[in-house]
Amino acid sequence: MKKNAIEVEGLVKLFGDSFRAVDNISFEVASGEIFGFLGPNGAGKSTTVRILTTLSLPTAGRVSIGGHDVVKEARKVRRISGVALQEVGLDSLMTAAELLLLQARLFGLSRPAAARRVEELLQLVQLEKFANKPVGQYSGGMRRRLDLALALVHQPEILFLDEPTTGLDPVSRRDIWAEVRRLNRELGMTIFLTTQYLEEADELADRIAIINRGRIVIEGSPETLKVGLGNESINISFVDQEAAQLAHSLLCTDAKQVQIEQKSVRLYLQGAATAVPGLISKLTDANIKPLSLMLTEPTLDDVFLEVTGEAFSEKALMSNQST
């Protein structure tokens, strides 16, 4: 049996006397797994990462990383962890090569070994051409890639990525995703990733935990979560808002939940495909003509809505929901 790379038990983090940033969470991450920690802004993701990476102490609970306690064996934890924090902390006056070299030497590589490692990593994150440019001149995507390289300098067993793609353009985001997958597949690296993007968690993680207001509300593989919810939906759009409103009042009893959003109506129900003919004839009878009709599988957005009663897209700054 594989040992657990991360074990968190009853973790609590209080700020001040009363604000529970992290409120009694427990989870395990198996060695070699990509674990996604999904939640809106301010849910407690970064606080959790800071504790898991020894930057901050837990108020209560136990956290072990690779079998080492984060409170008592912080030094050992740092040896085996690679960390890329949400705010990319780089000295803008230094070049990528200098930052990587210093990092490698601080982790105990001899000068020649460090120099070799720098070359490898620059190649890995495709920054060879910019190796001697000050980081201040880098784009957001380049800084993230360099930050990832810095986290990998000492070949960690476990990689912590705190919102690795927040604020990146879609192309840079895809690059990071590809890299994360490759590190996991080729090196068997365990990856703990926080994100506020449903799509990202869905795309990358073997297993996810959804965190909201400091608590884990649900945990499982993205597929299980979506299937467990069992909600498919039908999205019907109309020529104008008026038609949509008519349709909404006509169909509001035909599904578990019916939402109206400008010119379209969304119905959540099981066995959506079989319900389509009935809905169409009902609309036709009332002389309302739908412009388009789309069947969608449940998304993590739906999962979030179901377990928290709040729409994820309203809480997240940006959502990649495809409606």
């Binding site: 930057l55 962890s81 982790f107």
Partner: peptide, 17 residues
């Protein structure tokens, strides 16, 4: 102060320095 402001100080704290 530059290290503290840029967050590089935190990054260094995560090394065995």
């Amino acid at each position: 102060v530059r290290d503290l402001e840029s967050g590089y100080f935190d990054k260094l704290l995560l090394t065995p320095i």
